[in-house]
């Protein structure tokens, strides 16, 4: 795991448009689970791809299954999933999640969360995480749904 906050700060320093999704997004919103990697959905439009590449270079990012290979613009410009290792831990850079939901699709369903003093990132809200896992319906997604739903219930109860 190392330090996902440093990965997020590097992406932000390079002005990358991204949304935190997956396990880290869930944990930040109070879901008591563990995860080995940081998942982000990035915008594949315009200069964001080159910004993301600069950030990944600063992170010394390379593919987990082929350490000799580094992501390039063609990898980041589509909906694919880039499963990377970086100097601060595992990072999955995702062009789309669920049934083709992109950065633009997800942005209205995000909340801003403070990960460190004065440092905030956009995170996919729990409602949408649940909806995506329901629509995908993979075994690993179904397994985690009860704890996501219950955490959402508890959050609403506290509001």
């Amino acid at each position: 795991m190392k330090n996902p906050i440093e990965i997020l700060k590097t992406l932000a320093d390079h002005q990358v448009k991204f949304i935190v999704v997956g396990g880290i997004a869930a944990v930040a919103q109070g879901v008591p689970i563990d995860t080995l990697d940081l998942d982000v959905v990035h915008s594949v439009i315009g200069e964001n791809v080159s910004r993301a590449l600069s950030a990944l270079s600063a992170l010394n990012a390379h593919y987990r299954y082929r350490p000799e290979l580094r992501p390039d613009a063609s990898h980041l410009a589509g909906p694919g999933h880039q499963l990377l290792d970086t100097r601060h831990g595992y990072l999955d850079v995702l062009g789309a999640i669920g049934k083709g939901r992109t950065y633009a699709d997800l942005l209205p369903h995000t909340v801003e969360i403070e990960f460190a003093p004065g440092f905030r990132c956009r995170v996919l809200d729990l409602e949408t995480q649940i909806a995506i896992k329901e629509e995908v319906g993979a075994e690993k997604d179904l397994a985690i749904l009860p704890i996501l739903r219950r955490t959402l219930e508890e959050r609403r109860r506290l509001q």
């Binding site: 996902p4 880290i24 944990v27 930040a28 109070g30 995860t35 403070e114 990960f115 003093p117």
Partner: peptide
């Protein structure tokens, strides 16, 4: 949220 991340890490 920051404390949750600290615990996870």
């Amino acid at each position: 949220p920051a404390e949750r991340l600290e615990r996870l890490v």
